[in-house]
Nucleic acid binder design. Structure first.
Lengths: 342, 342
DNA sequence: ATGAAAGCGCTAACAT
DNA sequence: ATGTTAGCGCTTTCAT
């Protein structure tokens, strides 16, 4: 009974041609009210669902947006950045009637192999790439004809459209806050410097010191990589230079810093103040148990996801227009680790 | 130059018909070695990519597997269960040459509306549903013709295929462990009892007490819902009945229990031992900072994801066969909160 | 082992 | 405002 419904059949049931039914389904103008009603009626009664493949073949659109997440497995396991991003992206997809295809690459080979396949002809209407770094083989995707939007400014590709949070200003705010609390020897543990997030947060740190007339001391700058191990060691390495505060470029690293300081017998914030970045330790879970609760810069991750989809759809709709550069604001979240509050 | 490549064109370049090229691409047998070579050669040289929509239209397969996650936003924000599950599912999809379409529902309406659309004709080859509860509107998806696999046993639909971890045995193991440590008044905070995970873990708790000759004391059983708030209050409610240990049906709730006990001035594990469930506080992040580190039951979440895809593909390949019931083992992870180690 | 040809179900240009 | 018709690019019988 079911399963064999086609436009043609719906048309004959409604007493119109299949073209009219198609127009009704696709919300074309210039359809008589009563005809539209009748057609919708039949569609509802029969439970007809258009065949997606046929639509795609004829229209050259699939309604599929791809989200590509590179091989930094660690991050996906470790914190809630990607879950929140995906949440935002998914929500925006639902709202715009698109479907989200998720590509997570687990190995370099997979990344190489599948990257090409992601671009399969007529498979995706557009592509969102999250978390690239400079030498990422995913960069090749940026060169395709397909509409692409990157999350996190891709420094090596100034012509690419992207959505990002204001890393420089976020870091600046964090450090300025520490300065306002009276700290003078403010150290930093940076993120990966081959990613915009790492570079720009470092720049914000430097700018804050400079603009407030504090000297830049290279010994107070440790190169991290967003991973915990280096952050732990980096913190220990900083101690001989007696920082009175540390700005750590991610919360995940900041946890290691807290641990290292505790292991060294130092109290936070009494001996050393700490500010993180990301606000990924959700209130509801770990925060109340982390001691002391982490002052940090919150990124509007969910909104970045939503924005990414909206911007991508705009690119799809208006190709051959200048690249989009969307930069969202961040927010200073004050908790105990900076010493501003008890 | 590019972009207009079709089977026909590849065929003429290789000196064969388009049918032969199709066979080569789809690894059909009965193709002369040299012909296959020649065709593959041309494909590689031209960078030809088959048009997905056309393939789907003709073959009635899309290579798309859907993953549906119901509207329990909270969970996605809060812990790493879904990220790990998605990771496993994605990996298995990559390996089998399928693409993962992700559907996250954020509101009830979305769930109602989109659930039908997920079933759009010829859009998905199959469907994985994660984290349903009894009255979930998603249950309607189980009634469709489409191959469906559920993660987490759907108690109301005994004929559905599913993958789950052994909740009952996991809980049993946790409680038996507490008993072996000499605890006598073991309380529990259960999960949602309208989900198998909640019900079965509760059953495991009961079985462990019974089999070890301990009495069941209803006052030591608090109904939780996998959320933090009830767990906090539930823990406080338990205290007058002087439990010497608490088995909490999820790590997330167990954190609240730890907090409540601390707030009540009780020491863990000295005054009260605690065992959680899930092992979602990844070693690399919060664990070292949670005090005391949580003894817990680890679920093979990643493997459940992989298994889900494999089982679904098996169902797609062999329809009209009995439902699959895959139950994976769990593992007791001993840390400090149970008092077994220092 | 290969080719010819018939669709798959829809959209969109064209015609009226 | 609606119908007619020509593909879209592939898979899959059916021949040979």
């Amino acid at each position: 009974m079911d399963g064999k419904l086609t436009l043609e059949k719906i048309g004959s049931l409604a007493g119109v041609s299949r073209a009219t039914v198609s127009r009704v389904i696709n919300n074309h103008p210039n359809i008589r009210k009563d005809v539209r009603q009748r057609v919708l009626q039949v569609i509802a009664e029969t439970g007809y669902q258009p065949n997606q493949a046929a639509r795609s073949l004829a229209s050259k659109r699939t309604g599929l947006l791809g989200l590509v997440i590179p091989r930094l497995i660690q991050a996906l396991f470790t914190d809630l950045y990607y879950p929140r991003l995906i949440q935002g992206i998914s929500q925006a997809c639902n709202e715009s009637g698109h479907t989200l295809a998720l590509f997570i690459f687990h190995t370099d080979e997979e990344e190489q192999q599948l990257a090409a396949q992601v671009l399969r002809q007529g498979f995706l209407d557009g592509l969102i790439i999250a978390g690239m770094h400079f030498s990422d083989p995913l960069n090749q995707l940026l060169l395709s004809e397909k509409p692409v939007l990157v999350i996190g400014e891709p420094l090596a590709y100034p012509q690419a459209s992207f959505v990002d949070a204001d890393n420089r200003l976020g870091a600046y705010t964090a450090v300025a806050h520490l300065i306002s609390l009276g700290h003078q020897r403010i150290a930093t543990i940076t993120g990966r410097l081959d990613m915009a997030a790492g570079q720009q947060r470092r720049q914000g740190y430097l700018d804050a010191l400079t603009e407030h007339g504090l000297p830049i001391d290279e010994q107070l700058i440790v190169a991290g990589d967003f991973e915990q191990e280096k952050a732990y060691q980096g913190t220990l390495d900083l101690l001989p230079h007696q920082p009175d505060a540390i700005f750590v470029a991610s919360d995940s690293m900041a946890l290691s810093t807290l641990r290292a300081l505790a292991d060294a017998g130092l109290q936070v914030p009494k001996d050393v103040a700490v500010v993180g970045y990301d606000d990924l330790m959700a209130e509801e879970t770990a925060v109340p148990l982390i001691n002391p609760p982490l002052t940090t810069i919150r990124q509007p991750i969910h909104r970045m996801g939503v924005q990414a989809v909206q911007t991508l759809l705009d690119i799809i709709k208006n190709p051959h227009t200048p690249p989009r550069r969307v930069i969202l604001p961040t927010e200073l979240i004050i908790r105990q680790s900076c010493g501003a509050v008890q």
